[in-house]
């Protein structure tokens, strides 16, 4: 994905020259004109993207003393509590999602390739079903006999995890499946079998280590999605969820929400950087679209 560093950033013109020189191509004049347009577009784009972030930062620093919003937030036990809750839910989601997707993708590839289109379709359904509709259905089914999950805290948490696992399917399945595709599972498995390894050993010692990259990027994507999610959690009355906490904070406080929004953006950045670092050198980048 990345073409890497190709010139020192000596300001636009310097960069342009150093970029143009070694590049084989037609007419330098034409290219220079087009890169001028490109710079204008880029600067406008960067402006649009950074403005809300700068505004949020400025807003969060308005109270006196300037760090008040941040110290208030950090002193609020609900802040740490909601982060911890969302993180825990995220980890559980990842574990459940992986323990369902990994064997399935493996088995589909190795033993029942006929089912592949079916599994693929099911994992893509969450793309078609908006979160609000998924939670609508879940609440209607699991708030009445015989499955009254919504009556208890634990039951609601379980429903939340289940919904998030469904949301994670498209990313997780694609991550694992491309991972499996890149290592030629069949040959690896057959080689391990011919050396006398059993199934458990094959999965734990042969397949998993080779899927490290794919699994980690799938996991961090899931984490990034779960932590910011609002719709499902709010309808399931999971007020400890980070997104719901932020929303409630936004209704009751003035400057603290700005601080928390910025922190949340930073967390998303962190997850993406980790994904980028893990994914370095892999060709398939996994598409990410989070909770809207």
């Amino acid at each position: 994905m990345s073409t890497g560093w190709s010139g020192p950033p000596f300001g636009p013109i310097g960069v342009m020259r150093s970029w143009l020189k070694p590049r084989p191509g037609s007419g330098d004049r034409k290219r220079r004109r087009s890169s001028l347009v490109a710079w204008v577009i880029l600067i406008l784009g960067v402006f649009y993207f950074l403005l809300p972030l700068v505004a949020t930062l400025e807003f969060s620093l308005r109270p006196k003393p300037t760090t008040l919003a941040y110290t208030n937030v950090l002193a609020d036990p609900k802040f740490g509590g909601s982060l911890l809750y969302s993180f825990t839910i995220g980890i559980i989601t990842i574990i459940v999602s992986l323990s369902i997707i990994l064997p399935t993708a493996f088995w589909v590839r190795l033993k029942v390739p006929r089912l592949r289109p079916v599994v693929e379709f099911v994992t893509l359904v969450p793309f078609i079903i908006p979160a609000v509709i998924l939670v609508f259905g879940i609440i209607r089914v699991y708030s009445r006999k015989p499955f009254v999950f919504t009556a208890t805290e634990f039951g609601s948490d379980a429903l939340l995890v289940a919904a998030y696992v469904v949301l994670s399917f498209p990313y997780m399945y694609r991550a694992v499946d491309t991972g499996l595709a890149s290592i030629d599972v069949r040959s690896l498995t057959e080689a391990a079998q011919s050396l006398g390894a059993g199934w458990t050993r094959i999965i734990l010692r042969v397949i998993l280590p080779n899927l490290r990259t794919a699994l980690l990027s799938g996991a961090f994507l899931t984490l990034a999605i779960v932590i910011g999610e609002y719709t499902i959690a709010s309808f399931l009355a999971r007020n400890d969820q980070f997104g719901v906490y932020l929303s409630l904070l936004g209704q009751n406080k003035a400057f603290e929400p700005a601080a928390v929004s910025l922190i949340s953006f930073g967390l998303t950045w962190l997850a993406m950087i980790v994904i980028a670092l893990i994914g370095r050198g892999t060709r398939d980048r996994i598409q990410i679209t989070g909770a809207r």
Binding site: G4, G7, S18, W19, R23, L42, G228, F265, T268
Partner: peptide, 21 residues
């Protein structure tokens, strides 16, 4: 557009974050 390569990777990574923000 003939921009330096590092701008491209920076914008792509940022887009990954923004599309999820």
């Amino acid at each position: 557009g003939g921009l330096p390569g590092w701008i491209r990777s920076a914008v792509m990574t940022f887009s990954g974050v923004a599309s999820n923000f």
